[in-house]
Structure formats: C-alpha cells, structure tokens
Design a protein around this nucleic acid. Structure first.
Lengths: 202, 202
DNA sequence: ACAAGAACTGAACATGTGTTTAGTGTTTTG
DNA sequence: CAAAACACTAAACACATGTTCAGTTCTTGT
C-alpha cells in the first residue's frame, strides 16, 4: 500500500474526491474541501479536471474500471466487491443512487452478465428454473448490492466497523444460506402473493 | 387525493421538500427551490421550520411516522412499502444512505421486528433454521429495501416506469421465488464460501 | 544552459447559499 | 372592537461556492 505523499497530485485529488463524494455526497462536497484533503489549491483541482463535474466523471471512470477489471460476475465477485476499499464502495453507492449515466450502465452490465451466468447454471442444473429470468437477475443483483448501499446501517447492526470484512462476511453467509436452502419452508407466502396479484389484476 | 392548493402552506413546503430532497439530495436542494415549488417565499420556510436542518427533520418525522403506522413488518409490508408514494420512497432511500439518526433508528426497528417475526416462523415451522439469526434478519431487511434504494436502476431494467407498481411487483415475485424455493439447487456455493472463510480465518 | 511547457498558487469574481430583519396584512382572542 | 398572535413577504446580509486570471515555480527536452 502506497502512502498519500508518493502519489501524483492528480491521483491524490482523485482519491480525496472519491472519499469525500462517498461520505458527504457530490453536492455536499466542495472543491475547496477536496483540495484541502489532497493538500493542494482549489485552482489545481480545476486545472487537472476542468471542473467539479469533470472531477466527478474521473471518479466514475476510476471506480467503474476498477470494478470491471475485478473479474467475472459470480458469487466470488460478491466477496471481492465487499472487500473492496470502502471509499470506492461508498462512492459507488452514491453514484447508483444519484443515477449517474456511468453507474446506470454498470448496473445494466452486471445484470446482463448475471442473467447469462444464471442461465448457464440452469442448463447445468445447479440453478433452479424461474418464471421470469430477467426479473430474477435484476433482483439478485440488487440483493448483492444492498449491503453495499446500506453499508452503514447493516454494519452497525452486525457489530463493529462496517469497513471490517468480518462483518460483511457474516451478512454474505446468511444471504448464501437463504439463496441455497431458501428462507421459507413452504410456499405460503409465494401463494399468498400470487393470489393477491391475481385478484388485483385478473 | 388532495390537490396542492388546499394544503396549508406548511404542509405544502414539507411535501415540496420531500420531493426535492428525494430527487436531488439534501445538500443538492436549496431552500429557495423548495420555497418556489411550494409557491411561498424562502423566509416562510425558515419561519415554519426554523432552518433547513429543521425542515429535513420534519421530513424525517413525517416519512418515518407514515411508514411506522403502515402495519406489521412482514411480507405484506413489503408490498405496502413498494406501493407507497414514490417521493416518500426516494426520500427514505436518501435518508438511509445519508445515515440520518432517525433513519438509522427506523432500520434498527425494522430489523428487530423482522428478527422476532422470523423467530416465530421458525417455531411454527414455516421458516428454516439459521446459523446466525441476527445476520439473517439484517440481510433479509436489506434485501427488502434494496429495490427501494436502487429503484431507478431496477425500474429501468424491468421496463417502464419505476413508479409503476407492476414493475415493483415483478421484482418482488422473483424475490419471493428465491426465498421460497432457493436460487441454487445444490450447496456448492455455500460450501465454497465456507471453505474459503475457514481457510482464511482458521 | 536555455527555452518551452507543465504544475501549481493567491487573489479575485460572480453567483448562490442559509438566514435575519423589518415590516405588512390577516386571523384569532379577550 | 382593539389587541395580540400569526402567516407571510421583500430586501438585505454574511458567507461559501465554482471558476477565472495573472503570475510563479518546477520539470524537461535540446
């Protein structure tokens, strides 16, 4: 791990922005604050990135690339993402909520890959059949991302530091359990839900 | 449904703030914008709520109360929340991410109720046993909340309007399927995950 | 060694921000 | 009905914001 001082100023600014944007939100972060964190003048920020918006896009590119290069969309990927540097996690959560074009594209991409991956599993017999493969993929991905977006809340209730991997692992294991054996022992809720919908929309 | 004009100015300001805060974030929303949406002067906003922070707290209270009064934390509650007015949904998502004290309390409360509900189910035999009841409850709740927080992303990929209930229902059904029958047909992933963890932390 | 260019800064500018103040109508109340 | 309380506004204030500009220091290729 490299210390802050032996990074180029440009990288230092980007990292500072990533962290600030992640914690305080993009609108809640001033160029001056980023500059101060990086130990440079506000003018240098705009010199390197053109504008605050340019800085945000640079963060987008950096985060998305580092996730994309992370490998296949699979259960292992879950583990990787959860263990990724927390500033990146926080930033990604903000980007997804703020509905950045880049974040939207990433989400769509992950869903696409996941749907294909689940289809393979279905063929090979280790994934159950589904009535709506698309909806399942979307829901599954949003479940993967949920503890990431709700990191603070989940972490607090699962003890200790949300940044601590042990905490994330605990949640991930519980999730895998549900996905493997199911949560409900019979289909009473599924039936009830289907019934309600059929009654509402005949 | 009541039109905007026959609400008191105070309520109109609160509603406008709810919507603005939800879409643009709290830091990204100016008192002037809220005032303009509500058709009042900026000074009236602070007259009624003391400050921008006071306005945010009023939104917190309003949203949380309307959710709390919604009934039991159960699968039916999922449906209710998903069908709730979208401005409220968006605001709640922001509040959870911004880690408002009130939002954190709500999350903890929902988890508490859910854990108790799952424990009842375990006793009555319609919920499977779990190695870590707490972690399961937390994960389950974050899964319920996931499509709410990631509403824009999920909605776009599931077709049409994210506000449309049909879209949300489609995702909810897919989720219930996974929770009932499980997603994976065998425990290869669960085993793999457990193995990795045991190897990492002996 | 020198010139060209990049990295970098301090001060300033224009604008948007949350909030205050003084004041005007409009209810409510004794 | 007068007075007190309330709803409400226009104008202004102090400050924070994103960005620009002129200038300085540092690096680098020749």
């Amino acid at each position: 791990m490299r210390s802050a001082s032996d990074l180029t100023a440009r990288a230092r600014i980007r990292d500072a922005a990533l962290a600030r944007f992640g914690t305080d939100g993009i609108a809640g972060t001033s160029v001056r604050a980023v500059a101060a964190d990086a130990g440079v003048s506000p003018a240098l920020v705009v010199h390197h990135f053109g504008s605050k918006e340019g800085l945000r896009q640079a963060c987008d590119d950096y985060v998305l690339d580092s996730i994309r290069s992370g490998g296949e969309a699979s259960v292992e990927a879950l583990d990787e993402i959860l263990q990724a540097a927390t500033p990146v996690r926080r930033y990604l959560a903000r980007a997804l909520l703020d509905d950045t074009p880049a974040a939207g594209a990433l989400f769509a991409e992950i869903v696409e890959r996941t749907e294909a991956w689940l289809a393979t599993g279905e063929e090979e017999g280790w994934v159950r059949a589904s009535a709506d493969a698309r909806a399942r993929a979307v829901t599954y991905v949003s479940w993967l991302l949920a503890p990431l977006v709700l990191g603070d809340q989940v972490g607090r209730l699962l003890g200790g530091d949300p940044a601590e991997t042990a905490t994330a692992v605990r949640g991930a294991r519980a999730g895998l359990e549900m996905l493997t054996h199911g949560l409900f022992a019979d289909d009473r809720w599924l039936k009830a839900f289907t019934d309600i919908n059929e009654r509402t929309r005949p």
